[in-house]
Design a protein around this nucleic acid. Structure first.
Lengths: 233, 233
DNA sequence: CGAAAACACTTGTCTGACAAGTAGACAAGT
DNA sequence: ACTTGTCTACTTGTCAGACAAGTGTTTTCG
């Protein structure tokens, strides 16, 4: 009959804001226009702007902090911040950390086997090559760096951004126990081989093998860490 | 030491309004206080009242019609209008989110079955009871809150602090008021039952059943969301 | 009696003002 | 050189008051 419906100004403002975000290429985490700027830009009062912002905030589109401004919401990395802080200040819970990785990473490897593209595989190959290079030179700092990159790129190739951010969080803090485990005889060589097996399974799109290879890799690392910790206590 | 968080007045107003609704036994469809009445009752300016109302409207708690007033939402309108838009614009994030939870939570449930003590089980029982209570009252915000608590306490009862903190981050990674699954028709009733199955498995120390029950729970939620999304494309 | 006008009440929008939190510049003091 | 405090400018948070625009009831008048 009559498709006319009265539109509230704040609703129009919402659409205008989303349009601005798309046009000007605002990304998650970016600072957005201030309320006064928006008021001038869209030629509506600050009240209506604020009501629109409240709605966008309630639906998780933006976050607002007094004195600072309006920010495009960052779905993942912002929310995992407390988790990262906790990891850093609780490195003694290394066994707990590993238990969590044992839950997540094998499944991540399976997903990677499903979805990794040529570029992902190229990056993982590079990480492995660098790892081997510095393994020969016994440069532990670089070794750890490229080990981390391998695990992160694997997570990235799942094409699941939440999982990627999560894995980045888990791998940011590599406790002493992890580092010292590299000193156990043969661990580096074993890691080289285990990584290779994982990547080959991914390249073959073999989900099951990838999952199992990753599980084995972590279990082996864990048991080396355990025995290494045992020698200290 | 830490919980110094600045509370916005409109957020307090939201709680006050919900309290009034419960105390004075407002039912769906009822006309609520007018903005001016609320302003006098709660002793805050009309601006703050309006911002609170916008949020309650966006989360489907009330509907507002110019010239007539504010009405407690009836649940048909509560489910569809605002929610589907949000679903559409965040589809990928939601799918990613559930994929991650499907990796973590079944294993967490299995661990919980192994290690939960009497106190853990008491807490989870309480969460289920509160969930049911607010399910009857159709208070989505409270329902979501207790759903979250159930999942968190389950994670806590694994006695793995890393896993616990991780689950806290994951369950907050969706904005307040939008745990998507619960807005799909019939999901709340199904959730009540599925939670019960999970908890019973944990009480029986049945790892396998707990793991499978949790996986089923998440899969059902996800598939309800999927079919709900399908209805609008 | 019946229709139009007046009125009361609602939400919608605008304006201007001040409080409160934040960040950067800059100068004073050690 | 470095900390410390102040000042300033900009941000969001809150308030008060006004008028516009829908809606429903009551009154008035033809």
């Amino acid at each position: 009959m009559k498709p006319i419906k009265k539109i509230r100004l704040s609703d129009s403002v919402i659409n205008a804001i989303k349009k601005k975000v798309a046009e000007n290429n605002f990304k998650p985490g970016d600072k957005f226009y201030s309320e006064n700027e928006l008021s001038k830009l869209l030629e509506v009062s600050r009240s209506s702007i604020r009501e629109a912002i409240r709605i966008l905030e309630a639906t998780g589109y933006v976050t607002v902090r007094q004195g600072k401004g309006i920010f495009i919401a960052d779905f993942d990395s912002q929310k995992f911040e407390p988790f990262v802080n906790w990891l850093k200040s609780n490195e003694q819970h290394i066994l707990d950390h590993f238990e969590v990785r044992l839950i997540i990473e094998p499944k991540a490897a399976a997903l990677a086997a499903e979805k990794a593209d040529a570029e992902d595989i190229r990056k993982m190959e590079e990480a492995l090559a660098q790892f081997d290079l510095f393994a020969e030179r016994k440069d532990n700092t670089e070794i750890i760096k490229w080990d981390r990159k391998f695990h992160r790129w694997l997570a990235g190739s799942t094409k699941n951004s939440t999982l990627h951010v999560l894995m980045k969080s888990v791998t940011t803090s590599l406790p002493d126990g992890w580092i010292s485990s590299l000193h156990t005889p043969g661990r580096i060589e074993k890691t080289t081989h285990e990584h290779r097996v994982i990547l080959e399974a991914i390249k073959n799109r073999d989900k099951n093998s990838a999952e199992k290879a990753m599980a084995r890799h972590l279990e082996n690392a864990l048991s080396d860490i355990r025995s290494h910790m045992g020698t200290l206590s």
